[in-house]
Design a protein around this nucleic acid. Sequence first.
DNA 1: AAATAAAATTAGTCTTGCCTAATTTTATTT
DNA 2: AAATAAAATTAGGCAAGACTAATTTTATTT
Lengths: 218, 218
Amino acid sequence: MHTLSEENYLKCIYRLWQDKGQKITPTAIAESLGNNPASVVDMLRKLTDKLLINYDKKKGVELTAQGQKDATLIVRRHRLWEVFLLEKLGYDWDEIHDIAEDLEHIKDASLADRLDKFLGFPEYDPHGDPIPKANGKMAKRYSTTLADLKTSGYCRVAAVKDTTSSFLQYLQKLNISIGTKIQLIEKIPFDSSLVISIDGNERTTVSQKFGESVLIDM
Amino acid sequence: MHTLSEENYLKCIYRLWQDKGQKITPTAIAESLGNNPASVVDMLRKLTDKLLINYDKKKGVELTAQGQKDATLIVRRHRLWEVFLLEKLGYDWDEIHDIAEDLEHIKDASLADRLDKFLGFPEYDPHGDPIPKANGKMAKRYSTTLADLKTSGYCRVAAVKDTTSSFLQYLQKLNISIGTKIQLIEKIPFDSSLVISIDGNERTTVSQKFGESVLIDM
DNA sequence: AAATAAAATTAGTCTTGCCTAATTTTATTT
DNA sequence: AAATAAAATTAGGCAAGACTAATTTTATTT
């Protein structure tokens, strides 16, 4: 199996691949992991040797079929543990990500499947991210953000793109969670700030950066 | 906090300390961990620097108050996860130890306590080992083995001293689990084999080695 | 007590996964 | 196209934690 570090690279590449259809470069990986690009180059060589990725200067980094499978399993474990921590152990929204970062690396052939069953086969994790099934398939992944909205109107919070506790705590303060109904009232042309109404309450203004981290369902 | 390796050494020293009141030597630790004695000496230096142990050639290795506390927490986490794996995820008796070996290293300030609560504050793990409480205290630890019995008579299986799957599978085959009533019928002087009756059924003979791994309550 | 065996320790090496600094390659400007 | 900037890569190093081999210390025999 893979080392902790290899798994973190795989997961990182998987996330970059899902986030944008863009070319995945060593620099992007380095930034995402907080590592030095030189270290990334080392690891890319190792992952290539293990047939988990293909790296072509023109195309950037791509996961092989095996790499995708392995990365998906790590993500599956991460998201299942998040559900467990929140639902069973009573952790708060903003606490579970970091703990799941460690739990996701526990390797046992049937652990994910047993946990999945124990949790009742959840489709989404507490941040609204779809949980890959045992066969690798997963439910719809939302991609439109609040900041993407061109015109005023209603939407529902489907997921969040940021799992830092500062962001999640801000959401809690605003009384926003998965499923919350939001009305976009106005977009300020100057800085793309968003004037919104949360659950029909009085209007609030949030930043563009904030809007970009909220995935919505229309 | 401590590295994975440091935690494994701490736990090992804790176990050796509990097992026998004997002097804990680098060689004993090396054997127990399957490491080279030279590596152990390196690590003892590090643990000493971190004030987790005291090492004196005469007295051997001793845990400091902090070392005991830290080791107890690791054991607490291990045993709680074992209960979780068996009771909640439906693993078998012989599968849980190895997975808990990994889970015990997950560090989060409240994880053990939340898990403890979720599991209903169990006193013993599935192998009959007492689970340290949040305050470090723990229930009675059985120390008499089946092999220690001098005369024929009845006893109850309280715990097992060996967590290898070959041993646990043998127990399952013999229909022995925690709480099973065993009658010692005869001890063969030649090799200390034990003739026993399990739950009142027909007699079986087990080895001395087997008897030494079964902790009993009289 | 001397001889021998066992245990502990030191010295030096290896791998993993990271780093910095220097260099080369690729992209972007002017 | 040349100049400049950015990205990628190479080279060399470091710390952790293991190893082997050699040496020193301690224990056990004779």
